[in-house]
Simulated scan of single mutants.
Amino acid sequence: MDLPVYTKQQLALRNGQDKPQIWVAFKGFIYDVSESRLWRNGKHYEHWAGQDLTDELADAPHTAAVFEKFTAVGILA
């Protein structure tokens, strides 16, 4: 699967505010969470879309398996 590569700056724009897409990165992959009701307006509890959430997962009440529900749309440069 050949995914496009995005910079952190490009990811930051997909925050549900600057652009309609709501994307987050995890372990080098970028996921589209736009369809998730838990990510309305680009916010999920104290987390904001458009960021790499890899280091923040340790504080989450769920495991990395949550990302299996979403489609990877890119790779974080």
Rank of each mutant, 00 (worst) to 15 (best):
S36F: 02
G16H: 02
W23T: 12
Q21R: 05
L13M: 14
W23R: 05
R40Y: 00
V5R: 14
E35C: 07
I30C: 07
D32W: 06
N41R: 10
W23A: 12
K19L: 06
L13A: 13
H44C: 00
H47M: 10
F26D: 12
L3D: 14
G28V: 07
V5F: 14
I30L: 08
D32P: 04
Q21E: 12
H44F: 01
Y6N: 05
A12H: 12
N41Q: 07
A12F: 15
T7K: 13
Y45E: 08
A25E: 05
D18F: 01
W39D: 00
L13D: 08
A25P: 09
E35R: 03
L13E: 13
F26L: 11
F29Y: 05
R37W: 04
P20Q: 09
I22R: 08
N15M: 00
K8V: 09
P4I: 15
G16M: 02
N15E: 01
D32V: 07
K8F: 07
P20I: 02
L11R: 03
L11A: 15
G42A: 07
A25Y: 09
H47R: 10
Y6E: 11
Q17I: 02
Y31I: 07
N15W: 01
W48A: 08
D18K: 01
V5N: 13
D32C: 05
R37N: 10
I22W: 00
Y45T: 03
W48E: 07
I30V: 12
V5C: 14
G28I: 06
S34G: 07
V33F: 04
H47S: 06
H44K: 01
Q9P: 05
H44S: 01
T7C: 15
E46A: 15
S34T: 15
Q10M: 15
K43A: 11
V24Y: 10
T7S: 15
V33M: 04
Y45W: 14
E46P: 10
F26C: 11
L3T: 12
K43D: 04
Y31F: 06
H44P: 02
W48H: 12
E46S: 12
W48C: 06
Y6V: 08
Q10R: 07
E35K: 04
T7G: 14
Q21H: 08
L3E: 09
G28H: 03
K19G: 00
A12S: 14
L13S: 14
K43M: 06
F26V: 02
K8E: 11
